[in-house]
Structures are given as structure tokens and as C-alpha cells.
């Protein structure tokens, strides 16, 4: 019985150590930060493409001032927001970042829609190249966002579930992280309005 009891006790202790999730929490916290960096990185990549794109469109459709300026302004707004890992701790800052990027997405959508009206622009090699790059970047953004959403959902679960919530709260002082909301997904997925 003694042997049995000791074995059982030690095994329970090992299981208990796993159960508190100290390492898991640390690891997944780091994972969410990495996923977030990837999101920011891809948004930055998109912002870098825009000056060239605007210049190219201007060459063919200079009188579409409103749309062009809309893109430039939305870009300035999006890049003007300082993003740090601290942004993740502040839901308001996160919301601001998200809205600025969504604004840029819809401004860009309008710009691409306008290009449809200019056959010469559409045929321009430079424009087609920029458009491929923009499409590629939008796709990467979608992937990076999805990964971030998955990571944060996993992280938030650990922060809330018992008993890992105790470790998170009292030992590591970790809070839930903000995630991209469904309402935001809708605005991103919504096709841009085209006015004639």
C-alpha cells in the first residue's frame, strides 16, 4: 500500500504542476505577441505599397481627386497610430488601430473600383503589378488576422478557465486580450460602394 500511495501521490503532483499551466500561459502569451506582430507587419507592408499605387492611378485618372485623397488620408491615419505590444493590453487603442485599418481597406477598395473605368490604367503593366502585390498583401493580412484570432481565443480561454485562471491572475498578472470583432470582419468583407 505504501508503494501504491507514494506512486499515486507523485503522479498527482506532476499532473497538478501541469494543470497550473504556468509554462503554457507564458508560451501562449508569447505566441499571441508574435501573431500580433505579423498582423502589424502585413498592414505596414500594405501601407508601403500605397504611395506607388496612388502615383500610378494619378497618371491616368488625376481628376478622381476625392478618391485619391481619401486613400492618402486613410493611409496617414493608419500609419499615424503607434502600435506596440502594449496596444494589446488596451482595448481602446486596439479598437482605434482596427478602425483606421478598416478605413484604409475601404478607401483602397474604392480606388481599385475606379480603376475599372479606365481601360488604359487597367492595362498598365505597373498598375497590374501593384494590384497583384496589393491582393497578395490583403490575403496575407487575412491569414495573419485569422492566426491572431485563433491564438487570442486560445489564450483568453486559458486566462479564464479554472485552474489556469489563478496562475494568470495571481502569478503572471495576465489579462484577456482584445480580439478582432465580428462587426469589424463585416466591414472588411463588405465590397466597396461604386458610384457612377
Amino acid at each position: 500500500m505504501g508503494k501504491f500511495g507514494i506512486t499515486l501521490l507523485s503522479l498527482l503532483m506532476i499532473a497538478n504542476l501541469w494543470g497550473c499551466g504556468y509554462n503554457d500561459l507564458q508560451g501562449i502569451d508569447e505566441d499571441t505577441k508574435a501573431a500580433w506582430s505579423e498582423v502589424v507587419n502585413q498592414y505596414q507592408r500594405r501601407a508601403d505599397l500605397i504611395p506607388n499605387l496612388v502615383a500610378t492611378v494619378k497618371g491616368y485618372a488625376a481628376h478622381e481627386k476625392d478618391t485619391l485623397e481619401g486613400v492618402v488620408q486613410a493611409r496617414a491615419q493608419a500609419t499615424g497610430i503607434q502600435v506596440t505590444p502594449e496596444t494589446l493590453k488596451d482595448p481602446a487603442a486596439f479598437e482605434k488601430f482596427q478602425q483606421a485599418q478598416a478605413g484604409l481597406t475601404s478607401a483602397l477598395g474604392r480606388l481599385i473600383a475606379i480603376a475599372e473605368n479606365y481601360p488604359n490604367l487597367k492595362a498598365d503593366q505597373n498598375f497590374r503589378d501593384l494590384q497583384s502585390q496589393l491582393e497578395g498583401t490583403e490575403n496575407r493580412i487575412a491569414v495573419a488576422r485569422k492566426r491572431y484570432i485563433d491564438r487570442v481565443a486560445e489564450y483568453n480561454k486559458m486566462v479564464r478557465y479554472f485552474p489556469t485562471n489563478l496562475t494568470a491572475k495571481f502569478l503572471l498578472h495576465l489579462d484577456e486580450k482584445p480580439n478582432f470583432t465580428v462587426a469589424d470582419e463585416k466591414t472588411v468583407a463588405k465590397p466597396p460602394e461604386v458610384k457612377f
Binding site: 505579423e38 497583384s132 491582393e135 497578395g136 490575403n139 496575407r140 487575412a142 491569414v143 495573419a144
Partner: peptide, 8 residues
Amino acid sequence: DFGGGGAS
């Protein structure tokens, strides 16, 4: 692993 790079 894939991060969405490429073209359609």
C-alpha cells in the same frame, strides 16, 4: 507553413 503569400 504558409502565410498567404502568392498570387491568384
